[in-house]
């Protein structure tokens, strides 16, 4: 969990907005640090978290989370975290994503944990609103699922987790324009569709000028707030540097390495 990012997004573990649908898009860089951020953030906020880890193994996420001060094994045992290890599951793209959605639905709305773990007072532990994290949606595309089907899946996740259960959804999508294969066009289409559905987008991209030791990339934050009196979009652009145990964000050109 990065304190700096929390103040940028104005969300804190003890006070965060619900019914948010957050899209993280990464281009020419690795934005998985944001997934780790949101994972540790929502676990600290005592939310019930359902994590679809399609890119890495559980032990990888666990190792990173431990550096950020969250123990995934414990969270899993307590029933706070439901982890789908996509590398070990076989998703059949021909069947569509209905099964995957049913998994999300049951793990988000079900009782707190399959073990029915109890805390010291005897009753089952109560968790906050459910949160769905997906890392990353592009994997579904490369498995042969069509863009439309993925959009249906994300719509169902939004309708169920955000609207019905008042929770949050965070999805990561990797798109790279450099690749020439047909896959990539799909990712762009998917990103457009998702941007239409979501309430907050974090566009993360590498610097157009290439690798830099002190600035790892830039992040554009786009809010689409729907308030009672107005709807406005608000964009902010930051550059960031990922550290060993966190990340720092700063306005363009104000890296501490230069000033």
């Amino acid at each position: 969990m990065f304190a700096e990012l929390n103040s940028i997004l104005n969300t804190f573990p003890d006070k965060f907005s619900q019914e948010e649908f957050i899209i993280i898009s990464e281009r020419r860089c690795d934005a998985s640090f944001l997934i780790h951020h949101f994972l540790s953030f929502y676990l600290r906020a005592r939310c019930k978290v359902c994590f679809l880890g399609l890119v890495q193994s559980f032990s990888h996420y666990n190792a990173v989370s431990q550096r950020l001060g969250v123990n995934l094994v414990q969270a899993k045992e307590k029933g706070q975290l439901v982890f789908l290890e996509g590398l070990q599951e076989s998703l059949d793209p021909t069947k569509g994503l209905q099964d995957l959605f049913q998994f999300v639905r049951s793990s988000c709305s079900g009782p707190s944990g399959p073990l029915g773990c109890t805390d010291r007072s005897g009753g089952p532990e109560e968790w906050g609103p459910p949160v769905l994290l997906v890392d990353d949606l592009g994997v579904l595309l490369s498995l042969g699922v069509s863009v439309g089907t993925v959009l249906d899946f994300s719509h169902y996740c939004r309708a169920t987790v955000c609207s019905r259960l008042q929770g949050n959804v965070v999805m990561l999508l990797h798109c790279d324009e450099e690749e020439d294969d047909g896959d990539d066009e799909g990712a762009e289409q998917l990103l457009k569709g998702l941007t239409h559905q979501c309430s907050l987008t974090l566009h993360v991209q590498g610097l157009p000028t290439g690798y830099c030791r002190d600035i790892h990339g830039q992040m554009e934050v786009c809010w689409r707030r729907q308030q009672a009196d107005e709807q406005h979009t608000l964009n902010k652009l930051f550059q960031y540097k990922v550290h060993d145990k966190g990340a720092s964000f700063f306005a363009r050109g104000t890296s501490s390495a230069f000033l």
Binding site: R105, H155, Y156, A159, S163
Partner: peptide, 8 residues
């Protein structure tokens, strides 16, 4: 909105 394809 909740179930546009009849999944649930």
């Amino acid at each position: 909105y909740e179930d546009p394809l009849g999944w649930t």
